[in-house]
Design a protein around this nucleic acid. Structure first.
Length: 604
RNA sequence: CGGGGUGUAGCGCAGCUUGGUAGCGCGUUUGACUGGGGGUCAAAAGGUCGUGGGUUCAAAUCCCGCCACCCCGACCA
């Protein structure tokens, strides 16, 4: 046997439709709503097993493999990482340091082994890899290091939905990097930037149009985080962007440009109490009082963590039609605060459901009042009356709050709400933010020392001092990326795969399928030629009517279709059609040029 | 977890109100005719009607419980 050179081009696979499993459906199953869900089901790529649990059928698995291959290439080169594999089972003791079992809560799949030991199905692997590195890395000389895996993750999602877009079991690429420093050669920032580039390459190669947005960073200070959002209306996430500066962020993170405020305006009338019995929300109360939500003040009670000013509660005020942002509340307060436990807040005297900014003035509790600029205005306001079943009209800041407004230790005006379309851009005066829907396919994160501190992962530096290792982590939802690609590229007839991730590059449709027929033997020799050129080929050898084969070929979305009918064969030609080429008829291509035409179409 | 919806043949559905031998279309199998965008004719196979209980001479149908799946919502009080 001749030796095979290492760089020999890979020859493509040749599969026959009749010998693989492609159960296409004429009608989409009723439960599927999202376009990707419907098409993947109809085209025979996936089949549901349970809520948020799917089989990847041969076609679906092939695409996952393609995406994974791109991910591997980019990770191994641009990303500078090496691949490994960690287990799906995770003993609970690993959470002792990080307490993430609590953070994950019900989203963590828990199970007991036969000895009664608690075990988790891993939702991600920070603990496992940190534990592993702890044992293997003891010196700064071994760093930096970046490792990744492509592996099944488990999250007991509250509500799985939209097929592969939100699953309980899904395929993820997760990478972790380890450093002695943030800045400089070998530092976290360098690895982060490399990953950033790798991610952009990956999603571009998958044919996705995406927006890279600033995302909420974790509770440990200084960390940056970016999400890669595929632009799709069906996305669950909302992103905001400034069309002038290019600034883009997710809803939680997005800053809002300067907004004027005015707490000194005169009252609109006497404070008037209204009986509003048993009305649960802003909308209902508003309807009852005939006040629009944007003229009501919403006051949310946060429990303050220990802080130098020994403040116990933080009250955040936004307009009734806006949403309080917990991260911004913390940032404005300057210390940690979390949504108050209802019982605890009631015990402290807050009339939950009917809280007004005046609750901050009550004696005996130390409160910090944070007022969003949009609600720090004059004009008519309605708000709670600080007692059950009552609201007030004609709330006026100066009259109701008095001198407290002038004490920055007690009252501050600050951005504490989620950004929304139409808000001023934080980067360009006069520009306004636009909202888009997106599917989050990737997320990169500067972890800092969060995990290494929690798990005591320290190594000796060049001065023989033990220092916490600085970490980054980088995730891609591989199976979600597949769904996002379908959301992005489909038409009335089915999926339109980009060649880079299509399950096959070429589908050959012989009109006659009897073995030895001109059409079949031509199909086979064409397939061999394509395979030699490195293309994967599917021969539709089913004895079906042409219409059925064409419909199916369109549905499963193979980039190039070669049709072998009597007329074309009589001219020693094949009909050549690109899947993404709409209206046009197919071209006749001489058989001896067909392979070249396919290569050209696929490498475009 | 709250609200809404659905479970009847592989897929899509009707039948349930008013209880009385389980149906239609697609798909599947066989045969013939056909053969360029989801064919025609003929014959056939395929269903514990999600599940457990109850009412009744009789339950897919009425009553109660449970399960599964889908959609919407959800720390903003």
């Amino acid at each position: 046997m001749l030796p095979t050179p290492f760089n020999a081009p890979r020859s493509g696979e040749i599969h026959r439709w009749s010998r693989t499993f492609i159960p296409t459906l004429k009608e989409a199953p009723a439960e599927a709503q999202a376009a990707s869900h419907r098409l993947l089901l109809r085209a025979g790529f996936i089949r549901q097993v349970g809520a948020g649990i799917y089989n990847y059928l041969p076609l679906g698995w092939r695409v996952l493999q393609r995406i994974s291959a791109i991910v591997r290439e980019e990770m191994n080169t641009t990303g500078g990482a090496v691949e490994m594999l960690m287990p799906a089972l995770e003993p609970f003791e690993l959470f002792e340091g990080t307490r993430r079992d609590a953070d994950y809560g019900d989203n963590l799949f828990r199970l007991k082994d036969r000895h009664g030991r608690l075990t988790a199905l891993a939702p991600t692997h920070e603990e496992v890899i940190t534990d592993l590195m702890k044992a293997g890395i003891t010196s700064y000389k071994q760093l930096p290091l970046a490792l990744y895996q492509i592996q099944t993750k488990f999250r007991d999602e509250f509500r799985p939905r939209s097929g592969l877009l939100r699953c309980r079991e899904f395929l993820m690429k997760d990478a972790y990097s380890f450093h002695m420093s943030v800045e400089g050669p070998g530092g976290l920032n360098q690895a982060y930037d490399a990953m950033d580039r790798a991610y952009q390459n990956i999603f571009r190669r998958c044919g996705l149009t995406f927006t890279r947005v600033e995302a909420e960073s974790g509770p440990i200070g200084g960390s940056a985080s970016h999400e890669f959002m595929v632009n799709a209306e069906s996305g669950e996430d909302t992103i905001l962007l400034c069309p002038v500066s290019g600034y883009a962020a997710n809803v939680e993170k997005c800053e809002i440009g300067p907004r004027p405020h005015d707490l000194a305006a005169a009252p609109t009338g006497d404070l008037q109490e209204v009986h509003t019995p048993g009305l649960p929300g802003i909308d209902e109360v508003g309807k009852f009082m005939k006040v629009k939500p944007d003229r009501m003040l919403k006051t949310i009670v946060f429990r303050a963590a220990s802080n130098p000013a020994s403040i116990e509660w933080v009250l955040a005020v936004v307009r009734g039609d806006q949403e309080v942002n917990e991260g911004k509340v913390k940032a404005a307060a300057g210390f940690h605060a979390s949504m108050g436990d209802e019982k605890e807040a009631r015990a402290a005297g807050f009339a939950i459901g009917y809280v007004s900014p005046r609750a901050a003035l009550a004696t005996g509790r130390k409160c910090l009042l944070l007022i969003d600029p949009d609600s720090a205005q004059g004009g008519f306001w309605a708000t709670g009356a600080d007692k059950p079943d009552h609201h007030v009209k004609h709330f006026n800041w100066r009259r109701e709050m008095g001198a407290a407004l002038d004490d920055p230790a007690r009252v501050r005006v600050a951005d504490v709400r989620n950004a929304a379309a139409g808000d001023p851009s934080p980067r360009v005066p006069g520009a306004t933010l636009e909202a888009r829907k997106g599917i989050e396919v990737g997320h990169i994160f500067k972890l800092g020392t969060k995990y290494s501190d929690a798990m005591d992962f320290r190594v000796l530096d060049e001065k023989q001092e033990r220092r916490s290792v600085i970490m980054g982590c980088y995730g891609i939802g591989v199976s979600r990326t597949l769904a996002a690609c379908v959301e992005m590229a489909s038409d009335d007839n089915g999926i339109v795969w980009p060649a880079a991730i299509a399950p096959y590059h070429v589908v050959i449709v012989p009109m006659r399928v009897e073995p030895g027929s001109d059409a079949m033997s031509t199909a086979e020799s064409l397939a061999r030629g394509l395979s030699t050129a490195g293309l994967d080929v599917l021969i539709d050898d089913r004895d079906e009517r042409p219409g059925v084969k064409f419909k199916d070929a369109d549905l499963i979305g193979i980039p190039v279709r070669l049709t072998l009918g009597d007329k074309a064969l009589a001219e020693k030609s094949a009909e050549f059609k690109r899947r993404n080429d709409h209206n046009s008829k197919s071209d006749l291509v001489p058989l001896d040029r067909a392979v070249a035409a396919c290569i050209e179409a696929v490498s475009a």
